[in-house]
Design a protein around this nucleic acid. Structure first.
Length: 329
DNA sequence: AAACTTCGCAACCGCCATCCG
DNA sequence: GCGGATGGCGGTTGCGAAGTT
């Protein structure tokens, strides 16, 4: 099949079996086309897209109609920016499943695989480029864990404090913790996040034997993992294992019962105002909490080049310390 | 203000799996 | 079992908008 693009936005499909070679439109959909497609699906339902395209009088391929419907016209599609909760969930799920966009999209109601894929490529991978590292590398996943995730959690908190009732509607989250905590050395929160607290749910597994005692009011409980679980819909196969924006730390491999120790904060008792963020703190993370003042950045510019340079330098220090510990020097 | 660059995202493409006659 | 039609997925492209020089 030969395809020739035309300036008019249509292309001629030359097919030996289809000598009538009708014009097929390409490019952006017009309002009229959207209306035709929407009305047709409202009457006849979706599916059989090639047939649908013809019957609806659309000069589009079935695939194009399907894509337009699923990614844009379908009534339950959410438009607009991804919320911090959704972003966090994407980071989480991508760390588990990789580029399985449709699978990830299943856990974000109203969001399409295309949108998530675009988010990853334009935002997340951009960050990796700025840091001059591979987006699928361990270093980058560490960067996500140590800086991006806390940042998103901070945004979530800010959002919740400004509209505390919003959590009862969309995107209710659970935070699950792995037990592999180490006591943080009375850390100041990682930049630029203020300290937040974790709410323990007494109705669920007691964490007293899982979490080291907190040593001061400003101490955050630490963990190597944060899992955000979308509550709607409940999807059985959602992994309950402790999360892992990067999960190759030895503490994981040394703990075969990790799942047993995982605990969940019920969304019904989820109080964002005293929501406790667990920052990933390992024993070598002391330096992480002694970040220089320049790390304290204002809202909105944490991804600037200066910022990433600073963060990156600190991550380098952390990794060096980790390497030294692992090698036992 | 114009030229240029970067960004964000809708849409397309190619491949693969499944369905169905 | 075979082959065409269809649907679904992940990767890529093209273009308008926004930002920068």
């Amino acid at each position: 099949m030969r395809v020739t693009t035309r300036p008019s936005g249509t292309k001629r499909i030359c097919n030996s079996r289809e000598e009538e070679s009708h014009e097929l439109r390409r490019g952006p959909w017009t309002l009229e086309e959207d209306t035709m497609l929407t009305h047709y699906i409202a009457r006849q339902g979706e599916g059989r897209w090639n047939m649908l395209a013809k019957c609806a009088g659309l000069k589009r391929t079935g695939k194009s109609c399907r894509l337009r419907w699923l990614n844009y016209l379908k009534p339950d599609i959410k438009h607009g920016n991804l919320t911090p909760q959704e972003q966090l969930l994407i980071l989480d799920l991508h760390s588990k499943w990789g580029n399985r966009w449709s699978k990830i999209a299943e856990h974000l109601p109203g969001r399409t695989d295309n949108e998530i894929k675009n988010y990853w490529r334009t935002r997340v991978q951009k960050q990796a480029r700025q840091m001059n590292i591979e987006s699928n590398s361990k270093r980058f996943s560490d960067a996500l864990r140590f800086f991006w995730v806390p940042r998103l959690l901070q945004k979530m908190e800010q959002t919740s404090t400004s509209s505390s009732s919003s959590l009862t509607t969309q995107n209710q989250m659970d935070v699950s913790l792995s037990p592999n905590s180490t006591t943080a050395p009375t850390p100041t929160p990682p930049c630029p996040t203020p300290a937040t607290k974790l709410v323990k749910n007494p109705n669920l597994i007691s964490t007293e034997n899982l979490m080291p005692a907190v040593t001061s009011p400003n101490t955050t409980i630490s963990t190597d993992s944060i899992t955000i679980i979308s509550q709607q819909p409940q999807i059985p196969e959602y992994p309950k294992s402790p999360l892992s924006l990067s999960n190759d730390y030895s503490v994981y491999s040394n703990n075969p019962n990790l799942d047993d120790h995982c605990y969940y904060v019920s969304s019904s008792s989820f109080d964002m105002e005293c929501f406790n963020v667990e920052y990933p703190i390992s024993s070598h993370m002391g330096s992480f909490y002694n970040l220089p003042p320049e790390c304290q950045v204002a809202e909105g510019n944490w991804t600037s080049n200066d910022m990433t340079d600073t963060l990156w330098n600190n991550l380098d220090d952390i990794w060096q310390l980790r390497d030294i510990e692992e090698v036992g020097i």
